[in-house]
């Protein structure tokens, strides 16, 4: 009896999108020439609206760079107009920029620490929120309520100032303590994201992995989380940006991050015009904005990678099949 295996056609025809490259090039060019930013942004949007197939990653990258440059352009323009009245330039001195950029490494360091802790907490607590045991569920809920309810600035003060004295721990690394505070904060929100995402995975997937006899951990690791990723990443990107914004608070407990060095610069020019200080903080805002957009782009690329795992490859030609199969009779013998 012969099988009616439908003869699968080859790979879908490759569609050329010359504009994709153009958007990317325009986006990259807008870094030295910000005026091109709006063009890349606009074209990228047009293209993205029209289709949702391959090369989205490049489009999104080009468009995002274009967008960032447009916004910077706008900020600078606005600044020039405002400060023209006060009679001020909008740039800081090179030395001040160097200080700020050096300090931004500390900010990035804190962000990485708190992100790492936040992700671990999110996963552990998010999964614990769905546990079968009432006490584990309750403890996880209590953590989430605490982490989301407390103000991150107060938590930073408690962690960096009160806890070392209370527990007699040496106040060795304020960076670490502050990062723990931010990580707890992120964990509370992240746990809810992960819980929602796990619930969004269809029940049949769990049943299928059970029928393959995967252990609960394997189920989570190989089946549920990879699929939850598409739901997790967009809000997790926003959350990471929120945490990046939160890192500015660590300056208040004396960590030398961007904000702290900005304050140092401000104190150096104590007798300068107040307008200079506005300029200083505007530059700091721009620096944070750039950092936030870097995080944004990284998450977009990550999302792209996850999406790719759903796309799959093309069909194999007989030559590409392994030898022991190529020579066997194809299809089901009947």
């Amino acid at each position: 009896m012969s099988m009616n295996v439908p003869s699968d056609t080859g790979a879908p025809p490759e569609i050329e999108h010359p504009r994709t490259k153009l958007v990317l090039v325009l986006g990259l060019l807008s870094i030295p020439i910000p005026l091109l930013g709006p063009v890349a942004w606009w074209m990228g949007n047009q293209e993205l609206r029209q289709r949702d197939d391959d090369d989205r990653g490049q489009l999104v990258l080009g468009r995002t760079i274009g967008m960032v440059m447009s916004i910077l352009l706008l900020v600078v323009l606005g600044l020039l107009v405002t400060l023209a009245a006060v009679g001020q330039g909008w740039l800081l001195t090179g030395g001040q920029y160097r200080t700020l950029i050096k300090a931004s490494l500390v900010t990035i360091q804190i962000l990485i620490y708190s992100f790492a802790l936040g992700i671990v907490l999110s996963l552990v607590v998010g999964v614990a929120r769905l546990s079968d045991h009432r006490w584990i569920r309750g403890a996880a809920l209590a953590f989430v309520e605490f982490a989301r309810g407390i103000s991150s600035i107060i938590l930073i003060f408690i962690m960096a100032v009160a806890i070392p004295i209370l527990l007699d721990v040496p106040q060795a690394s304020k960076i670490l303590l502050a990062a723990i505070a931010l990580g707890i904060n992120m964990g509370g929100y992240g746990a809810e994201i992960i819980r929602g995402a796990i619930l969004s995975v269809p029940k049949g997937q769990v049943e299928a992995s059970l029928s393959l006899n995967l252990t609960p951990t394997q189920r989570l690791r190989h089946v549920i989380l990879p699929q939850a990723m598409t739901v997790i990443l967009p809000p997790m990107g926003n959350l990471t940006i929120e945490i990046l914004k939160g890192t500015a608070l660590v300056s208040l407990v004396g960590v030398a991050d961007i904000m702290q060095s900005a304050n140092n610069i401000r104190q150096e020019q104590l007798f300068a015009q107040e307008g200079t200080k506005a300029v200083l903080f505007l530059n700091v805002l721009v620096l944070y904005f750039i950092l936030a957009q870097i995080v944004n782009v990284l998450f977009k690329l990550w999302e792209r990678r996850v999406e790719k795992s759903y796309e799959g490859g093309r069909t194999l030609t007989p030559d590409e099949l392994p030898a022991h199969i190529r020579h066997a009779t194809p299809g089901v013998t009947g």
């Binding site: 967008m67 447009s70 916004i71 706008l74 900020v75 006060v86 940006i241 990046l244 914004k245 939160g246 890192t247 500015a248 608070l249 300056s251 208040l252 904000m259 900005a262 304050n263 015009q273 107040e274 307008g275 200080k277 506005a278 200083l280 903080f281 505007l282 700091v284 805002l285 944070y288 904005f289 936030a292 957009q293 944004n296």
Partner: peptide, 27 residues
């Protein structure tokens, strides 16, 4: 431009913005 302003303000820390407003108010 509205979208740009929204995006800019949303992705920068309130703390820095507060300092900015303070400096602007004094200026």
């Amino acid at each position: 431009p509205t979208m740009a302003v929204i995006e800019f303000i949303r992705s920068t820390p309130v703390l820095v913005q507060l300092f900015f407003w303070l400096a602007l108010e004094r200026a």
